Amino acid sequence: MMTTINYQQHLLPLSRQQLVDKLAEALTEDRFHHVLRVEQTAIKLAKQYGVDLEKASIAGLCHDYAKQRPDEDFLREIKEDGLDPDLLNWNNAIWHGIVGAEMVKHELDVWDEDILNAIRHHTTGAPVMSPLEQIIYMADYIEPGRSFAEVVKARELTAKSLTLGVAYQTEQTLAYLVERDLPVYPATILTYNAWVPQNKGEL
């Protein structure tokens, strides 16, 4: 059953339905339904872990806002906003979170830093993440549409502890990239070092 949050905190100048309508225009049908599932998963986790439900809804819906934008939009945003020039060496997998958060800020008028950080870090993680950031990081990974082998354990660990969920996802993500000889974004390594070793015995 879907939980619909009535936005009352003026965290953006839109109702939830107006935001959903914008996302329906910006994303393919599959991606749109993914963000709806992430929102619902984020709300469920926010209820469990005492996190603001409205922020969880907005961050969950907006986490992939920029996912299907053309590369030139990201490149322009990086240069115009004076973001880390190293971002120019990466691609959509990294940009849609880190650079996408700036697009959410400027285009949807969202200025809450916790929401923006949750969007920024939902793919790479970060050495320090607020409970909302952890929730979006995990909700994107474990939403009901996911069916990869590790997702069952990820869901179990997240239900037990956000910290364990974050550590497990980070461990699995790094292993996935290394096994396939894919480049690892530096923040992902920092996330691994901050979250995995001290929780290794419980994973």
Rank of each mutant, 00 (worst) to 15 (best):
M1T: 11
T170N: 10
C62M: 09
M103C: 06
S147D: 14
I58N: 01
Q134I: 00
A93S: 15
K47V: 10
I58V: 07
W95N: 03
G125Q: 01
V51S: 10
V166G: 09
L108E: 08
P144D: 10
T123Q: 15
Q169D: 10
E150N: 06
F148W: 12
G50I: 05
D30N: 12
L203I: 09
L83N: 06
Y176A: 07
S57C: 02
P186R: 01
S130A: 02
P131C: 07
V196K: 12
S57F: 00
M138R: 07
V128K: 15
Y176E: 08
P183K: 03
A167R: 02
Q198A: 12
A149E: 15
H121G: 01
L36H: 11
D21T: 11
Y65G: 02
R16K: 09
A159K: 14
V196C: 10
A26T: 09
E133H: 02
L174A: 09
Y49P: 00
L164H: 05
L75T: 11
T188M: 15
Q8S: 13
G82P: 03
E133M: 06
Y49V: 03
K79P: 02
A59K: 02
Q68W: 06
D181E: 14
K47Q: 15
Y49E: 10
D86A: 13
L182V: 05
A194G: 07
Q68V: 02
A154H: 11
V104K: 01
I136D: 04
E107M: 03
M129L: 00
L14K: 09
N199K: 05
Y176D: 09
V151W: 07
R120Y: 04
L36I: 03
I142H: 08
V35C: 05
W195R: 10
G145K: 01
R155W: 06
T41P: 03
A46M: 05
S161E: 03
V178A: 14
A187G: 14
W95G: 01
G97P: 00
R37S: 14
M1D: 12
A93P: 08
D73Y: 11
D64C: 06
N89Q: 15
T124D: 07
Q134G: 07
V38E: 02
H34A: 08
Q8E: 15
G145C: 01
H34L: 11
L87V: 00
D86W: 06
K153L: 13
A118M: 00
I43G: 04
E80T: 12
W111G: 15
L116Y: 05
T28L: 12
G165D: 07
S130C: 00
L12W: 03
T123A: 13
K47C: 10
I78T: 07
P131E: 11
D181Q: 11
A154M: 11
